[in-house]
Simulated assay, not measured.
Amino acid sequence: MILNGAGTYFFTVRGAKDAPIFRSVFEYEYFRKILAQEKGCELIAYVFSEYEVRWVMHCEQDWQVILDNLRAHMQELHFKLWHKHQQILSESAEVIFVEEDRYLVPLVMEMHYWPVRKGLVASPDVYPWSSDHLYRNIKQPDWLASHRMLKRMTKQRCNTLVRYERMMEQFTPWDTEEVENPLYKAFASSAYIALHLRKKKTVDRFSEAQIIALRMEAEKLVTSILGNSVEQVKQPRSRRQYQQIEPLVMWLLSQTDCSIQQMSFTFDLDETIIQGWIRSLPNQHPESFLTRIQQAWQEQGHANSALIKDAEIVSQAS
């Protein structure tokens, strides 16, 4: 399950259709600038390559809004520079929730060492499109919230730069798969995630009509990926197959901010059943299959937004 709401997140985004994101030095600098200026956010660290961008950011708004803004900015810039309407950033993105006290230091160091691991440079401090060289400066720029990471390395401010340089010299690869929470896309303990979820507002985001509309779209998506139609799997002889699809549908709805309580009430299902379905999915399906469905659902996000509005209009009219 992907977490959202106010918090610190690690973003990884690639070029649309595996095309390059940047074609000029100006575009690298422009992307860094719009990241730093994103409203309600603090940019903590970043690293860019021709085909991929990674950054850590503390957000006070939903990260999906941030990604939509970045896609729009880059598409507009591309048209101004090259006179072509073209999507630059992929619709799919990997977004991981981060517990700063436990994981921010190794995560930022892993990011800064990434160009070396990719064979782009011999040392992280010479790579121009990462925040590593800024972390080594006595005075960091105001637009970079490096203090959120550096203050966790040592209590004495005067020693943070020396400490950072020494740790980067002795850096060993950080296995992100080992530390990622098994139930959530997060570098965080279960206790910290539970606290984050409690802090989120409990106000329902969607009406009953909107949730029903989203469920129908999720059913269409999952059945099409499996090579069937909704009508086929809902036939009596295909009941067992539909029972396999329903947990996937609930999982997709939960990633669209539909609460377990809302789904339970709308679809007359016990909350513990829905929670059990979502927890058991990693054991019932290959990770590659779940990733494929998740990415397809994210790419369909704009269409779902329009569908939600239409469902609400129809509901109000009736």
Rank of each mutant, 00 (worst) to 15 (best):
P106W: 01
Y103P: 11
L161D: 04
E100W: 05
V222S: 02
L144D: 09
F97K: 09
E99N: 13
L120G: 02
V233F: 01
I278M: 08
P124Y: 03
D142P: 01
D62E: 14
Q294S: 15
I66L: 15
P141Q: 10
L252F: 03
A317F: 11
H196W: 13
S259N: 08
A188H: 06
L43W: 03
A209D: 10
V179P: 11
E299G: 10
T172D: 09
E99P: 09
Q210R: 02
E110R: 11
P115W: 04
R279A: 15
Q300G: 00
R157S: 06
D125W: 03
R152G: 06
Q210K: 04
Y184E: 15
T291Q: 09
I308D: 12
Y135T: 06
D310V: 04
Q170V: 00
M74G: 05
F97W: 15
E177V: 05
E169H: 09
V98C: 07
S131N: 08
L120D: 01
V98R: 05
Q140F: 02
K84Y: 00
Q61V: 09
D132Y: 12
G119D: 06
V222I: 14
K220H: 11
R102M: 08
F267N: 04
S189F: 08
T8V: 12
S24V: 01
W277R: 14
K309L: 12
P236E: 01
Y9P: 05
Q64K: 03
Y184A: 13
E60W: 00
F31H: 07
R215Q: 15
Y103F: 15
K151C: 11
I66F: 04
G40D: 09
R14Q: 11
Q61R: 13
I245T: 04
Y30V: 00
R148N: 04
K80Y: 01
L195H: 14
R14T: 12
R102K: 14
Q61E: 10
G7P: 10
Q261F: 05
C258I: 06
S238K: 08
M111E: 10
E180T: 15
L81I: 05
D142G: 00
S280M: 11
G5L: 05
L269H: 12
E76K: 11
P128Y: 03
C41N: 06
A213I: 09
L221Y: 05
K39T: 08
Q156K: 12
A45I: 03
D68R: 13
I212A: 12
W129I: 00
E52S: 08
Q37P: 04
L89F: 13
I308P: 09
N228K: 10
V47C: 15
E52W: 01
E91D: 04
P286L: 07
Q140D: 06
E91T: 02
I212G: 06
L183H: 15
T12K: 06
R279M: 09
I274T: 00
D268M: 08
R117L: 01
Q210E: 15
